[in-house]
Design a protein around this nucleic acid. Sequence first.
DNA 1: ACAATTAATCAAAAATATTTGATGAAAAGG
DNA 2: CCTTTTCATCAAATATTTTTGATTAATTGT
Lengths: 108, 108
Amino acid sequence: MEKTIPLTDVSLQDTFAAYEQKFKALADQKRLQILNLLCQQESICVCDLADMIDMQQSKLSYHLKILLDADLILKETKGTWSYYTINQKEINHLLSPELCCLFRPTCC
Amino acid sequence: MEKTIPLTDVSLQDTFAAYEQKFKALADQKRLQILNLLCQQESICVCDLADMIDMQQSKLSYHLKILLDADLILKETKGTWSYYTINQKEINHLLSPELCCLFRPTCC
DNA sequence: ACAATTAATCAAAAATATTTGATGAAAAGG
DNA sequence: CCTTTTCATCAAATATTTTTGATTAATTGT
């Protein structure tokens, strides 16, 4: 007979999988620095950000994609420029008020 | 001439490094499941936990060490048993109230 | 039309993290 | 004592993530 798994456990596993992706995105110094900057800046384009954190463009795009896929940042394209902003709602849902000054906007 | 870095930036980098470790510890489904269980249970020993999540002992010890090193859980040894508890203070410092039911104790 | 700029993507290499099974140390119980 | 239980640690194998440099596509300014 097959091993059965309670339905509630299945959806809990899905929940953990979703949080895994978000915490993975947060689990990197460089990405935390990016969030910290986006948190103070309204919106920044890739080339400006590359200057600010001294990181080559392809590497920065890689890290931005990870944050974007985790829904922690948002992207708006204007012409050849890509402007990124922090996803305030998602960050606030995830992180404590104590982390507000570093990563949560509108807080301090 | 050497490139100089402002002092405040140096300590910001240290802060990001510290959070990187904590978010890395959270960035795994199995570890989130462990935290979720510890959150409801006061304290659990390794062998009971191994049964609960169906994971071999050496693997579980590996994951527990990562959570312990990140200060997200605490360990107390009694005889041959190791009992682990959630580090409520640290978890509360890190995660939002919205995540209370999954990972923050005393909340729900 | 052409050259330059912006940024995403790709494949290969390098670096890290995880899994596995075995071993060892410490304590418990007969 | 001797056997069993509990749990941490180790080295090797595997898997995943990150970095790098090159290429591509779209757009801008001349």
